[in-house]
Amino acid sequence: MLEKKKSKGIKGVIRRRRIFIFVMLAWPVLRLLLEWYLNFDIIWMAFRDYTIDIINGDFVGLDNFKGIFNLFDPSRNTMPEYYALLHCAQLMLLVIFVNAPISLAFAYLLYLKVKGYKVLRYALYIPVITSAVVLVLAYRQVFQPDGPINYLYNMLGWEWPSGGFFSAENAWGSIIVFSIWTGFSTNIIYFLSCMRRVPDSYVEAAKIDGASEPKIFFSIILPLASPTICTMISLGIAGVFSWALPSLLFVPQNSGGYNVGTMGLSILNFTTGRHYGLAAAYGILVTLVACPIMIGIRKLSHKLEEAVEY
């Protein structure tokens, strides 16, 4: 009798636990399914044109893909799309070789609590809490002919670039500088946080063994921080594929001749222009490029994570 009661009780607990799990995961899983329905819908949309029927679209075969490949043809376009590809490659190099090392070095000095670190960490975090719109506005104003940079140029006797920093020719260079200027702040917080997670006992033991500061950095801190570094780089690279905002904000509306295109900007322009088929086709092509890169980085990250579990 007691056994029966006990077994009934256990069954009740299991049933209640199942209901709990169901309730807790119902919306998250439903939302995940919707997300993946939409992701697969992109494939369907890539073969259709939505100019007339905005919901169902008309089947157009490979026309959207042909349309995208035509964008790369220099004989058909004054600004062929391979510039967008080139710009994205440049941004990726920036993420890996400029922004990641800068933020790692800054985070390390903040970790060491250098002089004024409390003020510095606030100041360096400003780009994270500031809208890109505001940052672009402020940056643009500073580089205008009546801004402080011109004053600096006059003082140093340097020649002001013809057409200014935001002319059609110079705009992309200015965007790159802007991306360096604002690109490392988010990483600093993550790197600093993961450096704080390194157990003090590791560092203390190394110090007792006579390890120098560079030795501690390269043999303890850097390896332990490497999974986070890898993750942040992979997030940065993933961001490059849909990177559009600075180009959109830097360039005057309806202006041609500005060579500031990125793949993300093209997709955004197709989307807001309601050319859903072209946006979907371009999205698929970019996903095919992005997938192996992202999976490769994730695999590397997992390997590093396994090697430095602490």
Binding site: L32, W36, N39, I54, G283, T287
Partner: peptide
């Protein structure tokens, strides 16, 4: 695995879905 796969251009499908 799903989180690793970057799907680009999803906004067009989201817009279509919301419009429908």
């Amino acid at each position: 695995v799903l989180m690793t796969i970057p799907v680009i251009g999803g906004a067009s499908a989201q817009l279509k879905f919301l419009s429908a």
